[in-house]
């Protein structure tokens, strides 16, 4: 019997060894392994790559913001907070436009503690590692509840450490001409449908606001924590003072190299 007669009819030209048969079970097995690899890649993409892309987008956004002509240059020395006069309130900006920078001093060294604040809370805004301003809530510094949403996990992990904030921690908002300083008061964990946490008076949608508040909202889950999404973590803060950019900057961030 010659060699060529031993090879299966469908095999490719041999390199000395007969080619293995392509079987249904073999192909099925390879497809299932492929599906497993693709699922693994999806997890890598979701938990890592979305942040790589988002962080780059946010860095560009910040750079462009600081290059604007209307920015009052940063004076890198600590200045006194104005706690008596009402702060200037910026004009609302259009959806997706940048209105300022969110800075959380206690996140320094832990994570990126400086991020753009954009108008709106759609995923096109939040997926860029931005804090999104709930359009219907107050402007920064104004009486009412200036409320921001951010991703806890994925797309820059912007608000990953919101649950670590404790009473008295500062939350600072920087605009083209003003520093606004808030201090954390309370937090609550609510259902995603409970929108009254961003009402002018949190929990009381019909009440007339008298305080200047800031609220941060992000994903939460009682079991999965940052990896879950069945509840929302809400952290409230209260306005303590402001200063003109021309006078200096809040002392907590004078030495923070992340703050430009």
């Amino acid at each position: 019997m010659s060699f060529t007669q031993q090879r299966p009819a469908h095999a490719a030209p041999s390199r000395g060894r007969p080619a293995p048969r392509v079987t249904f079970v073999g192909v099925l097995g390879e497809l299932m392994i492929t599906a497993g690899v693709i699922l693994g890649l999806f997890v890598v993409w979701q938990l890592w790559w979305t942040s790589v892309e988002a962080d780059a987008a946010a860095a560009t956004q910040l750079e462009e913001y600081y290059e604007q002509d209307l920015m009052t240059p940063v004076v890198r020395e600590a200045a006194e907070l104005n706690t008596t006069d009402p702060p200037p309130v910026p004009e609302p900006v259009g959806y997706g436009e940048m209105m300022g920078v969110l800075i959380v001093p206690t996140w320094y060294g832990k994570t990126n503690n400086t991020m753009p604040i954009l108008e709106g809370t759609g995923l096109d805004v939040l997926d860029g590692a931005n804090a999104g301003h709930y359009t219907e809530t107050a402007q920064v510094g104004d009486v009412g509840n200036f409320s921001l949403a951010g991703h806890r996990r994925t797309h820059g992990n912007s608000f990953l450490y919101v649950p670590d904030l404790v009473e008295g921690d500062q939350v600072i908002v920087e605009t083209a001409d003003t520093w606004y300083v808030y201090e954390v008061t309370t937090h609550e964990v609510v259902a995603p449908s409970q929108v009254d946490v961003v009402a002018p008076v949190p929990g009381d949608p019909t009440a007339e606001p008298v305080d200047r508040l800031l609220t941060l909202t992000t994903c939460d889950d009682p079991v999965l924590g940052a990896y879950g999404n069945s509840t929302r973590w809400i952290t409230h803060a209260e306005f303590v003072g402001w200063m003109d950019r021309a006078d200096g900057m809040p002392e907590q961030i004078v030495d923070d190299p992340g703050v430009l």
Partner: peptide
Amino acid sequence: AEIDYFNPELG
């Protein structure tokens, strides 16, 4: 976007 799992919005 289809599974919309990590959406942190309220409402």
